[in-house]
Simulated assay, not measured.
Amino acid sequence: MQQIFNFIFKNSYRMLFLLLMGIALSLTIQSHSFHKSKVISSANFLSGGVYEKMNNVEEYFNLKIQNDELAKENARLKSIIFNVKDSTKIQFDTVAGNSKVSLITAKVIKNSYNVHENYLTLNRGSKEGIKQDMGVINSLGIVGVIENTSTNYSTVLSILNVKSPINAKIKKSNHIGSLTWNGKNTGFVQLVDVPRLSSARKGDTIVTGGQSTIFPENINIGTIDKVYIDNETNYYTLDIRLFNDMTSLGYVYVVKNKDTPEIIELEKITKKDE
């Protein structure tokens, strides 16, 4: 305490000067509108800058929540599109509860793409309703098919897997083929057994064929980059440039088709009768 008093006595003239100067500035500002407006403007500028920085920090830490909300909203909108044939007649308030296809949002927490049999791991599992053989997509196109699930996680057979055949077609002609991967390039897959009648051309869009319960019809896959003729079978083999960058995946959507169990059961009965 004695040191504080000593400091005050030692600097009393300086402190008195600063006090008087502060009073003079205050009186000057209060009595002159021009000076007052300048001070207020400067104060607003400083406080505004501080608030903006604080808001930027807060927004940064809220990005995960915002991304989760956006993913859920995208899933809802995609579900609506998948459940109406005529997208011009979508009614957002009447589709809920009556949809055949719904989407479950998930995030890729592990992704392999540098071997012949690549898999992904999602942060959602059976607790969220995810089951084996459900399709996985994102905003750009297909990603793969659910292989296994636990309570909170699931693994996905990536389209970059040599054991992953998927039904696909040329969009403009509806000619069907089987989508496979030759294990060479992460940016390309192959569509095989395409009939020569399809008149496939470079740049044509490839989409899901809809002849399975895994993916809805017409989900984007990629575009034709090269066309090869198999001389033995007289079919086309097409190199498809993927819309997706399979080496950089974030949020995805797991496709849940309510009719799948019924269709699978019916197909089992049909096979037994053959």
Rank of each mutant, 00 (worst) to 15 (best):
I4H: 13
N167K: 07
M15P: 02
R201I: 10
F5Q: 07
L179M: 13
S31A: 13
Q91S: 12
M134D: 02
T260P: 03
P165E: 06
A24V: 15
R201Y: 10
N44P: 03
G141P: 01
N218T: 05
N218W: 03
I23G: 03
K172D: 09
R241W: 07
L238S: 01
D68V: 15
G210Y: 04
T155C: 05
G141Q: 00
V227Q: 08
A106K: 01
N67R: 10
S47K: 08
M1F: 08
D239N: 11
T233L: 04
F17C: 10
D239R: 14
K256R: 12
K72G: 06
K100P: 01
M54L: 14
R124F: 00
T155S: 09
S178P: 01
M21H: 05
T149Q: 02
V252L: 05
L191P: 00
I130S: 00
I206V: 08
L249N: 03
Y119D: 07
G203N: 06
I269E: 06
N234P: 02
V50A: 07
I81K: 06
N244F: 11
I81G: 04
V143H: 03
S139E: 14
V194N: 00
V207W: 02
I269R: 13
S199W: 08
T213R: 04
A200F: 09
Y253C: 02
L19C: 11
L242E: 02
N83S: 05
Q91A: 09
I8F: 07
E147V: 04
S87R: 04
R14I: 15
